[in-house]
């Protein structure tokens, strides 16, 4: 029962994540309208099933008469690009430093540990805003800012795992057989931490989607001509009394995307972690 439930959760998470991915990749093919086409005679139209709704605009239109569903689908593009690029970038930097700190210890560990301390004393939102001031708006800069803020999440968690793995007998054995530091790291230590890394990566994708939405919401995210869920929320908030669905649609999209990645990450953690698998039976 437990097993089944957990795999069901992973599947639902995977399904949601893939759905966002497909929307992002195939946006031009599946979007019912041009997301930027304005129709000032049909602004703030309700969704198709509501009174006065029109089946050509399934989720209605926004304050400039643009199709909400089309914008939602195109918004997935930015969301998924940022999620993938930023989380991979943060993982590469954070885990490289974590391996160095955890494996070599000593001064390297001290230095990296203090860097993490300094970084963590900034609330993430504040740090990303400061970075966006410097970098300027744009998709690439959003990715860059998230990498620069979130590498610590990987570094902190992974470092303690490397500390544990480093003390295992097979690592000592590898060194005795004559493996170099590099060989020991890449052949013995990295593979042992892959499950944790995959879990952190999945969870980070959800976080990246939220951060991108936050930055776009305050107008410091992707450039204004790109379509992002955060911008749709900012627009929808202005029309909350007349057309609440223009706010609720992107809110729901963000929720589903993040829930998807979280369920996937949570499920993977349970199925990949040997200790938890053993404890469960």
């Amino acid at each position: 029962m437990r097993r089944w439930w957990h795999s069901a959760r992973v599947l639902v998470g995977l399904g949601l994540a893939i759905a966002v991915l497909i929307c992002g990749v195939l946006a031009p093919l599946i979007a019912p309208h041009d997301p930027n086409a304005q129709d000032l005679l049909a602004t703030l139209q309700p969704a198709a099933w509501q009174a006065g709704g029109d089946s050509t605009h399934l989720l209605g239109t926004d304050s400039l008469g643009r199709d909400v569903l089309a914008r939602l689908i195109y918004g997935a593009r930015v969301a998924i690009t940022v999620a993938l690029a930023a989380s991979f970038g943060a993982m590469v930097i954070g885990s490289a430093l974590a391996y160095l700190a955890g494996y070599f210890g000593g001064r390297v560990d001290w230095l990296i540990g203090r860097a993490v301390d300094v970084w963590m004393s900034f609330p993430p939102v504040v740090l990303s805003l400061i970075l966006m001031t410097g970098l300027g708006v744009g998709e690439r800069n959003v990715i860059f800012a998230i990498i620069l803020v979130d590498w610590t999440r990987f570094c902190r968690v992974l470092r303690s795992e490397v500390l544990v793995v480093r003390r295992r007998d097979y690592v000592a054995a590898a060194r005795l057989v004559g493996f170099s530091h590099w060989q020991t790291l890449t052949r013995e230590i990295v593979p042992a931490t892959i499950p944790l890394l995959v879990t952190l990566l999945t969870l980070e994708m959800g976080i990246a989607i939220v951060v991108e939405a936050i930055l776009s919401f305050v107008g410091l995210g992707v450039s204004p001509d790109q379509i992002a869920w955060g911008q749709m929320i900012a627009d929808g908030r202005e029309a909350i009394y007349q057309a609440p669905w223009t706010l609720l649609a992107p809110v729901l999209a963000i929720f589903l995307a993040v829930a998807g990645f979280n369920m996937l990450g949570d499920g993977l953690r349970r199925s990949l972690d040997v200790r938890m698998v053993e404890g469960r039976e």
Binding site: R9, F217, L247, L248, V251, I254, V258, A259, N262, M263
Partner: peptide, 23 residues
Amino acid sequence: TATTVLMSVPEFIWALLFIFIFG
């Protein structure tokens, strides 16, 4: 499962939903 789902709702989404519901 409910807590996993709840954890997927960041504070600004709660804020917007509350404005919609109670405002």
